[in-house]
Every structure is written in C-alpha cells, then in structure tokens.
Design a binder for these strands. Structure first.
Lengths: 221, 221
DNA sequence: GCAATGAATGAATGACTATTCAATGAACGT
DNA sequence: ACGTTCATTGAATAGTCATTCATTCATTGC
C-alpha cells in the first residue's frame, strides 16, 4: 500500500501498458483504420490488428465498439478545440490576427491531416442519426462559430463595413472551410492545403478589404 | 408473338409492375431509408419494408445491395446534372445569368431536399473507399466545375477584375456550396435554404462587385 | 376457362462480426 | 524466487444481415 502505483512499463508496444496509453493507442489505430478502409469496413478485428493487439482488447478498454468510435470523435473534437485556444489568444491583440490564426489553424498539417479528415467526414455522414455524435460535433461547431462571429463583429465595428453582416460572414467562412476540407479529402489531386488557404484568404480579403489583403496571386495555369 | 409486350399494370402499388417502375420505387425507398436511419442502419430489410415489398425484391431487380446503393447515387447525380442544363442554358445569354442560375439551382427545394442531402453526405463519407462511388461523384463534380469555371473566366474578361483568379473563385464557390449543404443537413435550426442563398450571393457580390449586387441585407437578429 | 410465364415472396442459408470469458503470463511486492 | 494481481489473449457464442431459391400467384395468350 506504500508504493505509488507505477506504470508497468514505458514502451508503447509492451505486453502490459497503463490504461490511458492503451486507450490512446487504440484511438490512433481507429483513426488510421477508418482512414484506410472507411467506417463501414472498420471492425473490432481490423482496429485491433492495426494496433498490433488482440480482439478482446477493445471491449476491455472501451466498453463497446460504439464507445471506441465515440471517444475517437471526441479526441478529434478536443484536439481541434485546444488548437482554437491559440487563435483565441491571437484575437486578443486584434480581430484580424484572430481570423488569420483561425485560417492558419484550419489548414495546418496536424489538424487537417488526410487521415483525420476521413474520420471527420465518416462521422458527419452518421451525425444526424447518433445523438452522441451530434452532441460532440455541435459543441465543436459552437465554439468555432462563437469565436469567428466575435472576430467579425469587432472587425465590422472597427472598419465601417456597412454592407457586411458578421453572422453571415462567420457562417460563410465556416461553410467554406468545411467544403475545402471535403475537397482536400476526396480530390487531393486538385486541392492542397496551400490552395485552400489562398481561397479562404481571398474570401476574407473580399469581405474585409481594408483589413485583410490577399497575397499577390501567382500565375494560375 | 404478335402482341407488343404491354406493361403488366399501371398502378405503383400493384402486385406486378414493370421493372423500370420497381427500380425507381426501390431507389426512392432507399433515399427515404438512408435519410431516416443513416447508411449504417440501412439494410435490405428496411428498404424493402419502406417500399412495402418483400426482402427478395432487391436482389431480384438489382443484383445486390451494393448495386442498389450505387444506382441510388447515380440517380441523384443524374438528377443534379440534368438540373445543371438549365443553368448552362442561362449562361449562354450571359455568365452572370449562368452563375445566378447555378446558385438558384443549388438551393432549390427539389435539389437540396433534406432527404437527398443526407444521402449525399452518407456516400461522401464512403466515397474515398469505393471506386464506383468515386467515379460517379467525380463526374458530377467535373461538370459543375467546368461550368462554373467557364462562367467566372468570362466574367473576369468582361469586367476587368485583375486580382481575381477564376479557378480559385470556382473552387471556392463549389466548396462554399458543399459546406452550406452540410449545414442545411446537420444544423437545420441555424441554416435555411434562403440564408444559404444569401451567403452565397454575398460571396459572389464581393468577388464580382460590378456585375453582381447582393440584395439589401435585412436586419439580422 | 386453362396453361404458361415470370414477378414476387419469405423462410432457410451462410458469412460476418461484436461481445464474452476462461486461460495465460507479465509485472510487482515480499 | 515465489505467489498474487490483473492486463491481455483468442476461441467460442450469439446476433445480424445479404443472398438464395422453392413456392405462390397475378397476368397474359390461346
């Protein structure tokens, strides 16, 4: 009773690992598996194999396949929301900096990695039918919307943009980002993170010309 | 051998119907079923029940469940492309009319009905993993892109918009539309076809201010 | 009417998969 | 070393679902 319950072993591949590490390992295997095979062909067996572990491990650490999927979605949502904090911090110096940070974030490698996009869209397809998915996604959406809307509102006050409705711009930016994510996933040959960034910046530059200027357009073929 | 093989019976609910009519009936049942329960919970049994027919009927008229799903996707893609012809016709009088017709089309009731959006996104989630889905979607995307890109190019030539790259605008418009469709599906309480139309028009008005003017913004609550 | 045709049915089949649990063995305290 | 604990395994189980096919029955031609 004196000893502090030490982790059994440090390495990830060990035969026995602390629960939190196994859960993380399985969530990452789930992401790779969904990205490789789609949600429909993702089974307990394929995830376990991807993780290099046995079938039973998933029902041991998560209570069911459904919970594994839910936790995987929650993991991605949390990751996104944590990254948002950086943008929120930038917004404190100026709304423009905040918006630029958001665009940067949305098309940063770690956030819109192909594997993760595949998972997002796999879940979005089922979102309407699973209350749990819906809750997790709605929470993520809300924090995004609130932030971007606040930035746009500030910018409109500073810049005298009479024709611009902040709520509309925020909804538009959110929709544009989602659509570009979809392109990145399903048409990687004609969409890149860099191009997506330029399209988004061009949108913002059109709306807030006195605050945001898009980088000089290089020649398009 | 003399008689022309007549349709067995006219009514849809009859015990015997011409094959083409049964196929159509089953495709419509599939759309309702996917919209109501999601792709994951759409089974041969649920579709057959939705259509008011027996289990075996699907393997009789389509060779497998997979083919039923493929044909359903193809049906939606064809419907969209047919609707595009209207916009293509409008574009012949002027590119502005063409763009307006496209926006009109994308947020018209028949095209972005909730049931159909649910099916689109269900398939988009699996698109990456099924070559057949990919082909059908890619064909639809291409006809959209080609059309919109041509309209934007014409407009840029007519209007002297030095900073505007037609390809970028077309990609952006396409992404924006997809993103708004997603909102219409998963957040109907905060997105309507009318609002989506306004957001899209506001985007176009920002890009082509000398050709497209957005309707006066009514107060946003 | 009557036989022939083939559309439609739905119970039976076989494949697949989530979940369980008895057996295994690694890690730790003594 | 040795026994205890508990993470892990993987074969067995139970359930679901696509597909098949022998049977039923509406329709048509004669």
């Amino acid at each position: 009773m004196l000893s502090t319950k030490r982790p059994h072993r440090a390495g990830a591949g060990g035969r026995t690992a602390p629960p939190e590490q196994r859960r993380q390992q399985l969530i990452e295997a789930t992401i790779r598996c969904v990205a490789k095979r789609g949600l429909a062909d993702t089974t307990i067996a394929t995830v376990a194999r991807e993780a290099g572990l046995s079938q039973g491990i998933i029902n041991l650490h998560f209570r069911s396949k459904e919970r594994l999927l839910t936790e995987t979605l929650r993991y991605l949502a949390d990751e996104y929301r944590n990254a948002c904090r950086t943008a929120a911090a930038a917004a404190e110096s100026s709304p423009v900096a905040g918006l630029l940070a958001m665009v940067d974030l949305d098309f940063r490698r770690g956030i819109c990695a192909r594997d993760k996009l595949a998972v997002w869209f796999a879940f979005w397809g089922e979102r309407k039918f699973r209350p749990t998915y819906r809750r997790i996604c709605a929470a993520r959406d809300k924090s995004y919307d609130d932030m971007v809307r606040a930035m746009c509102t500030q910018l409109c006050q500073q810049g005298e943009y009479p024709g611009v409705e902040p709520a509309l711009v925020a909804d538009g930016l959110s929709a544009l980002t989602d659509g570009l994510w979809l392109d990145l996933l399903v048409r990687p040959e004609s969409m890149s993170r860099e191009l997506a960034r330029r399209i988004t910046m061009s949108y913002l530059a059109d709306v807030f010309p006195r605050h945001i200027r898009q980088p000089v357009a290089s020649s398009g073929s």
